[in-house]
């Protein structure tokens, strides 16, 4: 079995196909998902300090709002002198295929977003109680 680094459709980079999960992806996946041993056995987590990471939940806050407002403001600066907005949007949609919008700014934003996760030392045994996941759906 091999995994292509590009989508089999040859989408010209339309879909990013990393060969492995990044740490951020791993954090999203293995910390609050999967079978919980405590549900089966009571003798788990024997005397080991497990570092856990607060699961990130996106909660819209004033900071988020201000960031959006700032981004809109930045947008204006970048595009000034190019006429009204509807015009601008039209150009963007037409030129979408040619235009490579993914740039340094996007990368910086992503890393800022990921930065929210931080390691916190956790007592190690207690609050790892099983959280119910949705039951397996079958057709």
């Amino acid at each position: 079995m091999t995994v292509a680094t590009q989508g089999a459709g040859g989408g010209g980079g339309a879909v990013d196909r990393p060969s492995g999960s990044s740490l951020a992806d791993v954090i999203d996946t293995i910390l609050d998902k999967g079978l919980v041993i405590d549900a089966y056995v009571r003798v788990s987590l024997v005397g080991i300090e497990v570092l856990t990471i607060d699961a990130r939940i996106v909660i819209a806050s004033v900071d988020t709002y201000l960031r959006f407002a700032e981004a809109v403001n930045r947008l204006d600066l970048e595009e000034k002198g190019q006429g009204g907005l509807p015009n601008l949007v039209g150009q963007m949609q037409e030129g979408g295929a040619k235009k490579k919008t993914k740039g340094a700014a996007q990368g910086a934003l992503e890393s800022a977003g990921e930065k929210v996760r931080e390691f916190v030392g956790d007592g190690g045994d207690s609050d790892r109680a099983p959280r119910r996941r949705r039951p397996r759906e079958e057709e």
Binding site: D16, R17, P18, T29, I30, K33, G34, L35, R133, R136
Partner: peptide, 15 residues
Amino acid sequence: LRLLGPLAPYDFVVA
């Protein structure tokens, strides 16, 4: 868009 996988079925196991 990003596609990750194949992965173990973390989101589909339940105790």
